[in-house]
């Protein structure tokens, strides 16, 4: 197997506060293979966006990477000096943020922003960069791109703006695109279009994608594999079909059951009692144990590590520990 594009090993992100240090990400490990779309799901506060921010080196102080390593094609990038990291950002890792209105500069035309980005990373003349910018806009589905490129961001509708942001993220042909809730601010009919564009264009250029979203539907449509985060820890990671249709981790099972679908017939939704713990009150052992329906003694004492399962799945749950499974079979 070739080296993964991105490899995150035991990543720990901490926020020192006056009342002690908060651990927002706790030993998160995953890989993204070449051309793969990895979905990152979880509820608010689970640490999805933080993972993205840590990878591109944009953690807001006082947040800091307190442990683990991040490798981009086998090279460590979490300890690079800011100047070097700045070159990787945009050139090798592109970003798409949630709100297209705040990620574009309202004072510059789309052309200026695109050309600046292209010329920062690639040695091209102004004219060639402009040509390339028009081609990019055309590719992301903006009609009459050659004319509209000189418009300001406010001239575009929400969906069109997000297309511009995607064009910006891909301007320097990065190997990895981190898309943080790219469609959350958009209507469903526009969301479907944006997801298609993102998926197609990344596949076409061989860019891997880390798609951060809280919307399981978007993940189902887009991702190859999905990682489920809970309270800053990975609960489960595996091929999207397996995780969605045959969820095994009790948290994923609850999460999937709580989503109303267009085809279900059940009268009531499954509900997970309680809510996600605050960072200063993460329980001992498994973070999910107070809400888990299948909790047993060990869950309250030891924290489960990711356990490899068949079919490339990994699960952090004592239920799937070999010893426990053996016992269950004996009974």
């Amino acid at each position: 197997m070739s080296t993964p594009i991105l490899s995150v090993r035991d990543l720990v992100v901490e926020f020192p506060t006056r009342r002690g240090t908060l651990r927002a990400l706790d030993k998160v490990s995953f890989d993204i293979a070449e051309g793969e779309v990895l979905g990152m799901v979880g509820e608010s506060g689970a640490g999805k966006s933080l993972t993205g921010a840590a990878i591109i080196g944009l953690l807001e102080p006082p947040g800091r990477v307190a442990g683990g390593e991040i490798l981009l094609r086998g090279e460590r990038i979490d300890n690079l000096p800011p100047e070097k990291m700045r070159r990787i950002r945009g050139r090798r890792i592109g970003m798409v943020f949630q709100d297209p209105l705040t990620s574009l500069n309202p004072l510059y035309t789309v052309a200026e922003q695109l050309i600046e980005t292209i010329r920062t990373h690639i040695d091209l003349s102004e004219k060639d960069a402009r040509k390339r910018a028009v081609a990019l806009l055309d590719r992301v589905g903006i009609p009459a791109a050659a004319r509209r490129i000189d418009d300001y961001p406010h001239h575009f509708s929400g969906g069109m703006r997000q297309r511009v942001v995607i064009a910006l993220a891909l301007a320097a042909e990065p190997e990895l695109v981190i898309a943080d809730e790219p469609t959350t601010a958009l209507d469903v009919s526009v969301q479907a279009q944006i997801i298609d564009v993102l998926k197609e264009i990344c596949a076409e250029r061989g860019a891997s994608v880390m798609l951060i979203t809280h919307d399981m539907g978007v993940i189902a449509e887009t991702a190859d594999r999905v990682a489920v985060l809970y309270a800053g820890r990975l609960a489960e990671i595996g091929p999207v079909r397996d995780v969605i249709q045959r969820a095994e981790h009790p948290y994923t099972v609850g999460l999937m059951g709580s989503i109303p679908t267009l085809t279900q017939t059940a009268d009531r939704l499954t509900q997970i009692p309680g809510s996600m713990p605050r960072l200063n009150a993460i329980p001992q052992g498994c973070a999910f144990n107070p809400r888990c329906t299948r909790v047993f003694d060990r869950c309250k004492v030891d924290r489960p590590e990711l356990i490899a399962r068949a079919g490339g799945r990994q699960m952090a749950c004592w239920l799937y520990d070999a010893a426990v499974q053996g016992e269950a079979e004996n009974v």
Partner: peptide, 24 residues
């Protein structure tokens, strides 16, 4: 029909859908 087609499909049924076009 278009709205229904735009809803992401959790069942992964691979149902055929008409691509959504345009904006409101």
């Amino acid at each position: 029909r278009m709205l229904l087609d735009a809803v992401p499909d959790l069942a992964l049924s691979g149902r055929r859908r008409t691509p959504v076009t345009g904006e409101i």
